[in-house]
Nucleic acid binder design. Structure first.
Lengths: 199, 199
DNA sequence: AAACAAACAGTCAAGACTGATTGTTTTTAT
DNA sequence: ATAAAAACAATCAGTCTTGACTGTTTGTTT
């Protein structure tokens, strides 16, 4: 019926989605191959065929997750003209992205990569790419008047760190109102703007 | 020779230190009981006697780690008179704390607790206590003129999130200079101060 | 010093995971 | 139509972990 290319695409997609879902639900350590295969309703052999080792499966999942996160980040900002951006609105949008699940899947990978060199080699360059894209967005919307590249990079890192940190805290304290208050303080203090512009 | 209380104290200390060291070196998933025992140069039986289950060992390690982190946080600020605090100095101190190992041990526990309810029950209250202490310090040094408790809480969370986030990024990109630039931007933007005070 | 309790040592059984192997079905190319 | 290749299925061997169990040493109490 289906061509082989289609079958492959469908199977690998199911497999990668199951991997990411498991990452979210059970964490990196809990993401075992038998469990992922059960979730994807697929035999171990099928998985073995497409991804011979766990490492190769995870590597592919990292790339897929990267695309998902990037899409989420760009979801709202892509259609916004450069320079015209309501700040608290943007913060609200970003917060919604960060309270989604892809952040936690990414977090699992990053934290696991700290003590797993091979995973680190896979995720580090992809993360760097994600940060670069974030920088470009920041440059376009938040920091159009800043010319020093170092400044842009550092400010982007600060902004990402705030969201990462707040989302991390959300693991233990699910108080969204407080996180929003923290974000309001950050925007009010003009953190997301530099020299000559304000919220 | 040694009294039993001393023996117990020494053994549990060795065990908990080995647990924390393993947490740092191999992550939560890699912290197996045989490995911890080898590291502590101790038999499985000894560990079994003092901490019958893995959960009980980890719970004790959490409490010990809490004390270590709290000590680090207070290390410099305790001797500083309230109100007189050089801001970039304080940020530098905090950054040194966060680039230490206890943060990463804590990170492992927090991230693992996301998908491990029993661990979460152990670490959530301890983390809440840590945040409360941080709030008190912030109130004393950074926000003495702020009266709204919500404001203090939210600002503290923002500050902690920045350090948490920056330290997390450090896992993949070890560029300390950039992190320091980000911190400088945060302080320069008056993020760590509220109304009426500046850096 | 004798009896008791705590601390410590070593081993085992059940279960889980990864990578490998062998066999079966489905698609493709000649 | 048929051989080759890709996709899929099922099972196995080896290693690891946790909790449990039995025995030994060390400290305490009376």
């Amino acid at each position: 019926m289906a061509t082989q290319a289609e079958r492959t695409a469908q199977t690998t997609e199911r497999l990668l989605d199951a991997t990411i879902a498991t990452l979210i639900e059970r964490g990196y350590a809990g993401t075992s191959l038998p469990f992922v295969c059960r979730r994807a309703e697929m035999s171990r052999g099928a998985q073995q065929h497409h991804y011979p080792t766990k490492e190769s499966l995870v590597a592919a999942a990292v790339r897929r997750l990267f695309e998902q996160r990037l899409t989420e980040f760009q979801g709202r900002l892509a259609s916004t003209p450069a320079g015209v951006l309501d700040l608290s609105d943007a913060a609200e949008f970003m917060w919604r992205v960060y309270t989604g699940n892809t952040f936690y899947a990414w977090l699992e990978l990053v934290v696991a990569s700290r003590t797993d060199p091979t995973l680190r080699e896979v995720i580090a360059p992809v993360d760097a790419l994600l940060v670069t894209r974030a920088e470009k967005m920041c440059q376009r919307f938040l920091l159009p008047f800043v010319t020093d590249p170092n400044e842009v990079t550092a400010t982007t890192r600060l902004i990402l760190s705030i969201f990462d940190g707040l989302a991390m805290h959300r693991i233990l304290s699910r108080d969204d109102a407080e996180a929003r208050r923290a974000l309001r303080i950050a925007t009010r203090q003009g953190l997301f703007t530099v020299k000559g512009r304000d919220a």
